[in-house]
Design a protein around this nucleic acid. Structure first.
Lengths: 339, 339
DNA sequence: ACGGTTGATTTGAACGATCAAATGGATAGG
DNA sequence: CCTATCCATTTGATCGTTCAAATCAACCGT
């Protein structure tokens, strides 16, 4: 009885037109410009659409409009899924529906040149634009895309080109400031910092927020130490750092991995994170949640939404925004900062 | 000088035809059926293609072939990214290129009925098929897709329908068997098990492999305990479990989270994973890598590849395979099983 | 009753590709 | 020399949709 969309008998605009006794264009109007259709006709067409379960073919629309209605995003196999890329991808995929488009993740084929994936996606116009994640100094992608005239937006500033403003990023400094303030509110005495080696823009930013907030609070800054984004190194460094801390102090970290290192160092000394020494991580990753670590959580939904807004705007030909978007992360509190 | 693909001046098959002095169909043949074209003509056409940088428009091909050339996969925001869905998605995205298609992840809009995402993706034929991850008992998706005649393959068996064979799954039992054997090879005495509460098919499967291998090795089975997929519970349960173990024993776990619980329980007792008690997790997640836990790693690339093969076959109308594919996971060894 | 205007609806064309059938030329066979 | 066969290539039509222009009907004022 009900129409079986077995693919062979796909319902087209013609079928609806015939069923409603109107022309195909009227059906198209009923869907896209209802105000151009007389109310009673509209009613009849809509009934036919519901009856037959019609939905416009996206391939046909793409061909006509010369728009794929898709945004590409590159995924790396390369070890660490960064704890941020996956959630951003999820948020993008969900948010895309609201923007009338979809996301197409593609892989960088190992062995191929860096930009090959982008080139082939663009060549067949599988996508109308790209979202770049994990931008870094010397990133070859922005200049190449710019040169090709391909629209894109980035999660992460485009460090090499200050004129580019179609970016979203997280205000790491504001995040660590919040972290320090939270520690003080919770009654911790001094606030130490465990960060990455100087030179990484993201790391330096996060450290500066800690320094600022400590100064604002009146010299509560504890010692600062540096470790790689590696649990062993973090744990070792944290162990050494603890030598210079006393119960009642706290450590703000540049990442959840570093914070986990502090957590482990504490436990190994028989101390309890939170009760004895406060610990705050950064990223709001699953690792932090699992270990009940207070963490500065990335606003994934907002990041995705802004990226989509940026590419949408670019596709509509709007001029780029005045400035990039610096989003404020929010602190997720847990046991590790409860005294 | 070089052609600027600014979208307005997109190179079409007509442009190539004109440049090469042939008809559009000859260009099409040169690309898709080179043997039908005389060698010298072929040469000329190929030169024109390279010169202009022509690539067939995927929208046009989709319309003509009535194939979107895409496979949909649903992503959940719901907390745990399962540690497996993200890597599988990455592997799928990369593998898709080899299959001449791409992956379209879509989100289940919260508040909407479960199947709405699938329905809308299918309605506009944005995808030709779906890959389902995280299948479970009472999953409403397979019967619905079946009823609609929509092609799909699953990662995880379809428990409610034994006749369905378009699935890939990981042989959990074989994985834990390997884990037990590895423990014995490393010289551990008894091998205990930390699993999930009975009733989950995956969990029971993993436990059975442990039991089997222990029996084969001649009653080396240590005690078994049960905890939820939660670090605190795992740690508590592991602490109790350790009461019944001695140095030189090992614990095989149903997941990396459980294994991490054992790791923490050991550390808190001043014992060292590996040297004192062996620990093996399951999934090969980042958590395991970070903590140097030996783990039964999921074969993500093979899983993705098989899923793609299955949907490709389904789209070509091939009959379903005789049986589902049960892939053997491989053990990733690390410090936690080094005595 | 007739041109003029408005509004609803229909027809023609195009998006870019490919299948199917038609065309043109060269060669072989009667 | 004329037809049959074969190969390379071209033309026509189509996929489903939407823009632009054409058609049609109703209504208005003079």
């Amino acid at each position: 009885m009900t129409p079986q969309p077995g693919d062979a008998d796909r319902v087209t605009i013609h079928d609806v037109a015939r069923a409603a006794g109107v022309s195909r264009q009227t059906v198209s109007n009923a869907v896209n410009n209802p105000e151009r259709v007389r109310p009673d006709t509209l009613e009849r067409v809509r009934a036919a659409i519901d009856e037959l379960g019609y939905r416009a073919s996206s391939s046909a629309q793409s061909l006509r409009s010369r728009r794929a209605g898709a945004v590409g995003i590159e995924l790396h196999t390369l070890g660490a899924h960064n704890a941020t890329t996956a959630p951003v991808l999820t948020a993008l995929s969900i948010g895309a529906a609201r923007h009338g488009c979809h996301i197409v993740p593609f892989g960088s084929q190992s062995g191929h040149p860096m930009l090959e994936g982008y080139r082939s996606m663009w060549a067949g116009r599988l996508v109308d634009a790209f979202v770049l994640a994990e931008t870094h100094h010397g990133d070859p992608r922005p200049p190449w895309l710019e040169e090709q005239g391909i629209p894109y937006a980035t999660f992460g500033r485009v460090w090499d080109d200050p004129t580019f403003t179609r970016w979203v990023d997280v205000d790491g400094g504001a995040g660590t400031e919040d972290a320090v303030r939270h520690c003080r509110d919770q009654g911790y005495e001094r606030v130490a910092f465990l960060g990455w080696p100087a030179g990484s823009v993201v790391g330096d930013d996060r450290r500066s927020g800690w320094a600022r907030a400590c100064a604002d609070a009146g010299g509560v800054a504890g010692p600062a130490a540096v470790a790689e984004q590696d649990l062993d190194d973090a744990t070792a460094t944290a162990t050494a750092l603890l030598e210079h801390l006393s119960p009642g102090d706290a450590v703000v970290c540049a990442s959840d991995v570093l914070a986990l290192g502090v957590h482990h160092a504490l436990v190994r000394r028989g101390l309890e994170p939170g009760r004895d020494v406060g610990v705050v991580g950064f990223d709001g990753s699953e690792t932090a949640t699992m270990h009940h670590l207070t963490s500065v959580a990335q606003p994934f939904e907002a990041i995705a939404e802004t990226c989509l807004d940026l590419v949408s705007a670019a596709l509509e030909g709007s001029p780029p925004p005045e400035h990039g978007s610096l989003l404020r992360p929010t602190l997720t509190t847990a046991r590790s900062t409860r005294a």
